[in-house]
């Protein structure tokens, strides 16, 4: 078996999904950690987003992070394309469906809806990039005025950009819905990724299942609290 066959078989395609999925999960940990710095403002009102802006500025000037940004985009691209390929290929394996479906009697709805949840997340991702990544990297729209940080560096005022973006209810609602989709996507994807990589020992599977449920709830919840906190005036 050559390398190509290893990654193009039905199992191989899932291995690709699994590896990229786990990589994106590690990205979520970094992302929620950096963005979570906004909550310093809720504890210390004099912070005014300084901790978050410093973290964002560190990420912007760190060469490792800059390189990893390309890896991250590659990860997103492969996960999305491969996900769509797997979804459509699998759908084509049954030309005629059943009159009466098995439905929830055999599996959880979210485990059967990974393609749909992933597509919702893709649309959300495009909006998210439009709101934050493109202004921070290219247009600088909404962050024209640089801000002097407490560590002496000058950076973009991403905190104010978040505050301005999340001043509109429809955006807050869309972000919360995006986070809910992420939670359900992770609820299945987290443990499924480990199974696809061959984790079959009950002892570890139980641990991964528990970890997956915790991760799927906590991380999207923290993300969802960000737009809500701005809109409800808890921070900013």
């Amino acid at each position: 078996m050559n390398w190509s066959q290893l990654f193009t078989s039905t199992i191989g395609k899932k291995i690709v999904m699994s590896v990229t999925g786990l990589f994106l999960i590690t990205f979520l940990v970094v992302h929620v950690g950096v963005n979570g710095c906004i909550f310093k403002d809720a504890i210390d009102s004099s912070d005014n987003g300084d901790m978050f802006n410093r973290a964002a500025q560190f990420m912007a000037r760190n060469v490792v992070i800059r390189i990893m940004e390309y890896v991250l985009f590659a990860g997103f691209f492969i996960h999305i394309i491969q996900g769509l390929v797997v979804e459509f290929e699998n759908r084509g394996k049954r030309k005629r469906g059943y009159e009466v479906n098995l439905g929830n009697r055999g599996s959880k709805w979210y485990s059967r809806s990974m393609g749909l949840l992933g597509t919702i997340l893709l649309l959300f991702l495009l909006l998210h990039w439009w709101h934050f990544w493109i202004p921070s990297r290219f247009t600088h729209a909404g962050i024209e005025e640089p801000v002097l940080l407490s560590n002496g560096f000058i950076g973009h005022d991403m905190f104010s950009l978040m505050k301005a973006t999340f001043s509109e209810w429809w955006i807050v609602i869309v972000y919360v819905l995006g986070c809910i989709s992420l939670a359900w996507h992770l609820m299945h994807g987290f443990q499924s990724a480990f199974r696809t990589l061959g984790l079959h020992n009950k002892k570890y599977l139980n641990m991964v299942n528990a970890l997956g449920i915790g991760f799927s709830i906590i991380v999207p919840l923290i993300f969802a609290l960000m737009p809500l906190s701005f809109k409800l005036g808890w921070i900013g």
């Binding site: 039905t10 055999g106 299945h188 696809t196």
Partner: peptide, 10 residues
Amino acid sequence: GFGGCTNTGA
């Protein structure tokens, strides 16, 4: 021509 597994458990 069988499909791939997505670990749904059905």
